[in-house]
Design a protein around this nucleic acid. Structure first.
Lengths: 162, 162
DNA sequence: CGCAACCAGTTGTTATTTGCAACTGTATTG
DNA sequence: CAATACAGTTGCAAATAACAACTGGTTGCG
């Protein structure tokens, strides 16, 4: 099996952090709502049908982790605005990839709305893994390399690097 | 705000299905482990440190949803093998995108292992959203189009299509 | 063969999360 | 100034997760 990624020890990859922020129920649906332009508590509440205390908790957590910013609404100080930060917007590829996966493999998912390029109205491409020079990569084209090293090792075959 | 995606009514996008399959705690970490070549119950158990009943439950659910297949191990019939299906492998872009996000924005995430192209040992590119003809797209380059229609509408500006 | 260890779970119990409904405190509208 | 809207909070019931111990088939070994 060659070099295998240590899974819970040191050398933590980014996935645990991502899941700490986004791994709870509703987090991704709140994010989707935010990408669709919702900004107020009552909007999230009525569109998502989530319990108010949970919504409150999730919004606070997303703010705490820097995915959303919370600010009082100018012009109506009852309202609060939750807006995506740059960090939040950075989740768009992950969310769309999940969504494309759900549309491809889910049963009875036939979207009435298609996400398109605003410039020409053509559907966006499936999200893929690519090499530094643009070749499309699959699972078995990937390998691990230690941070300082020049050697690498195939994902699940004995050796490839040195 | 123009055309807005209905969020919980009809026209469900693929995200709810994806979250139904992968949205529970541990599901993504189990998937990561599977991508790293783990196949046996005891391997998942010891590498992830997850409670055995939860692991049992999650594996069953992932099998039920077609992400993994469960088969008895030839040669040692005590063991069971959980292997990724094509549907499971289809989650790799989403998982890597989440992971890249975690590595970019997470504090104290400095991976010792870098995911590289097995062919040349170069790190893979960041996962991006692309148009059908390969241009890289951001949030504000996206729009919604109704399934049958030729019209489209900018994501959060009044109009663009007709 | 017989016994100990191994593997993949299950069962029972306790802690943590979630969901629901009602309530609170400002701000705004009429 | 009263009624309503907004963004929460509080208290409680239900569901989910974590922990530990146990079960029931293999399998390796003497």
């Amino acid at each position: 099996m060659g070099l295998r990624e240590p899974l819970r020890e040191v050398a933590e990859c980014g996935l645990p952090h991502a899941l700490e922020v986004m791994g709870e129920r509703w987090s991704f649906l709140i994010l989707r709502a935010a990408f669709n332009g919702l900004i107020h508590f009552e909007e999230f509440s009525s569109e998502l049908g989530i319990a108010r205390n949970i919504l409150s908790n999730r919004l606070a957590k997303l703010v705490e982790h820097g995915v959303l910013v919370r600010e009082r609404c100018e012009g109506d100080k009852r309202k609060v605005e939750y807006r995506l930060t740059e960090k939040g917007v950075g989740l768009l590829p992950a969310m769309l990839s999940l969504r494309q996966w759900g549309e491809k493999y889910g049963t009875n998912v036939n979207p009435d709305l298609i996400l398109v390029d605003a410039r020409d109205g053509e559907p966006i491409a499936p999200i893929t893994i690519n090499s530094h020079d643009g070749r499309q990569l699959g699972w078995h084209d990937l390998a691990w390399r230690e941070a300082g090293s020049q050697e690498w090792c195939c994902h699940d075959t004995p050796a490839a690097g040195s």
